[in-house]
Design a protein around this nucleic acid. Sequence first.
DNA 1: TTACTCCCTCTAGCAGCTATAGGTTCAAGG
DNA 2: CCTTGAACCTATAGCTGCTAGAGGGAGTAA
Lengths: 145, 145
Amino acid sequence: MLTIGKLGTSTGVKVPTIRYYEQIGLLPEAERSAGNQRLYTHKAHERLAFIRHARELGFSLEAIRDLLSLSDDPDQPCAAADAIAKAQLAEVESRLARLTALKTELERMVVQCAGDRISDCRVIEVLSDHSLCVSDHATNDDANS
Amino acid sequence: MLTIGKLGTSTGVKVPTIRYYEQIGLLPEAERSAGNQRLYTHKAHERLAFIRHARELGFSLEAIRDLLSLSDDPDQPCAAADAIAKAQLAEVESRLARLTALKTELERMVVQCAGDRISDCRVIEVLSDHSLCVSDHATNDDANS
DNA sequence: TTACTCCCTCTAGCAGCTATAGGTTCAAGG
DNA sequence: CCTTGAACCTATAGCTGCTAGAGGGAGTAA
């Protein structure tokens, strides 16, 4: 039985994050010691490692919730899990495309910044005028999660 | 003089977002009509376009705040603006690297999912065990803005 | 005048945590 | 046995960058 701190260091998940996962129902409520401290089994460790790994791969907590409920039920067909992974892949690919365009623009900006006054600064100039851009970084970036 | 709605449609920024930018001080407080509605000049339009474009390129609102105060001061040296852009570029590059690794893993997951029961499902399996991964997407990803 | 769209403020909500305050429990050293 | 200090507990508020909703006022066209 692990304390929350040990579980945290052994999975690389911060303690408040573990409690947060419990709170939102991603982890079951932990057993408690006589003094009301959380105690974790090997099973909980595995589940948290799964979550962490999926987070690293960019899955949302909602997707992870689905994957967990699938893996709790190992006789179901795996098409659902496959679909989640495929959707995730598609998202990653589109994010990659946008980021690549974005990188191109930033490189152009940085390289061309030759003047030494703001008034000549390419960075400011390019940011002021989208038509100076080569690529179509525009559409609905958001670049998050 | 534009109303907030016209400004929004002409820049592609939603009305509540414009108000939000004013609230956090990215846009100056707008003039008001007799009936207390915001009115915008061409200057405000330019400033908002700048903000939008920088957001599209992934700059944080804090970075944009700095860039704006630099561009308000055109006799300053442009090294600071350059530094902000370079930092942004570095971040984009690191995000790109992580996303690329991630894509590789997801592709492997999807391709290998041959069984039709969850118990044989590579997706779940790979997520359960990081050692099955090829690449090192692990270290402190977070993948967020 | 009525109807309709746009505008106003204020507040709360989203993801996915992180931080802080104020208190309790546990293990080790003296 | 007692004290110290780290690790734990709960509860609440904060973070970024918006978005949505309620409940009302302003502007315009028929």
